[in-house]
């Protein structure tokens, strides 16, 4: 474990908690993409299967349970409890265009053609694009509540910190995983224009308004 990965995990946890709390407190999921949340649920489910089989550390197991539980809770709140507030009209990204290529790529490019490894690889590829429906929705609505932008910022920073973690691990432990790194770079790059807007607008107290 290193400080970059720890801060990354904390940022990731913070993002998930911010979102869950926002939906629960406002009893509404307006402005949130349910499709992205479904994709994140799929990412954690396919990646954390080893929760049952392999034990790495208490921290690792606890965080996996928390991520899975929070992800499913968010999906439940969005599609069941506060279903009436779900914004179907703006959450229109075709997620099959993300899932199918991720499956194909996981079958083509992986470290080992085993079920668990393929599922892990699929989850890595899918996670790198899972935020697209949310970013697409923000661009369609033209704005995002500040709490939603804090969620997106924390979520974007988490994988950016993981990039630093991988640099550190390459330097300190002399190993690296190119699949995770390439997908992590793609994932972080997707947030760049949002980071720009967040830093130039939201941090100055303005609402996140995308140029129409």
């Amino acid at each position: 474990m290193n400080i970059f990965r720890l801060l990354g995990d904390i940022s990731h946890l913070l993002a998930i908690i911010i979102l869950l709390r926002k939906i629960w407190m406002s009893r509404s999921c307006a402005g949130i993409s349910g499709k992205s949340q479904l994709l994140f649920g799929l990412v954690y489910t396919t990646r954390y299967l080893d929760l049952i089989t392999s034990y790495i550390s208490l921290y690792n197991s606890v965080m996996k349970v928390v991520f899975l539980a929070a992800s499913y809770a968010t999906i439940y709140l969005m599609y069941v409890k506060f279903k009436a507030t779900y914004d179907h009209n703006h959450d229109t990204f075709r997620i099959e265009f993300l899932v199918v290529p991720a499956v194909a790529l996981a079958l083509l490019i992986n470290h080992d053609f085993q079920v668990v490894e393929i599922l892990w690889t699929f989850s890595i590829y899918l996670e790198s694009v899972a935020i697209l429906p949310q970013l697409f929705m923000v661009s369609k609505t033209g704005e995002a509540e500040s709490i939603t932008s804090h969620y997106l910022f924390a979520l974007g920073v988490y994988r950016g910190l993981y990039l630093l973690n991988w640099i550190y691990r390459f330097w300190a432990e002399d190993h690296y995983d190119l699949i995770a790194i390439v997908a992590g770079v793609v994932q972080t790059v997707l947030y760049c224009d949002f980071f720009y807007l967040y830093i130039t607008k939201v941090l100055r107290g303005k609402k996140l308004q995308l140029p129409a």
Binding site: R5, H12, D50, S54, I56, H111, R169, D177, A180
Partner: peptide, 10 residues
């Protein structure tokens, strides 16, 4: 082949 280090990351 790049060693896919043991999945100790979240």
């Amino acid at each position: 082949i790049l060693n896919s280090f043991q999945k100790d990351e979240l």
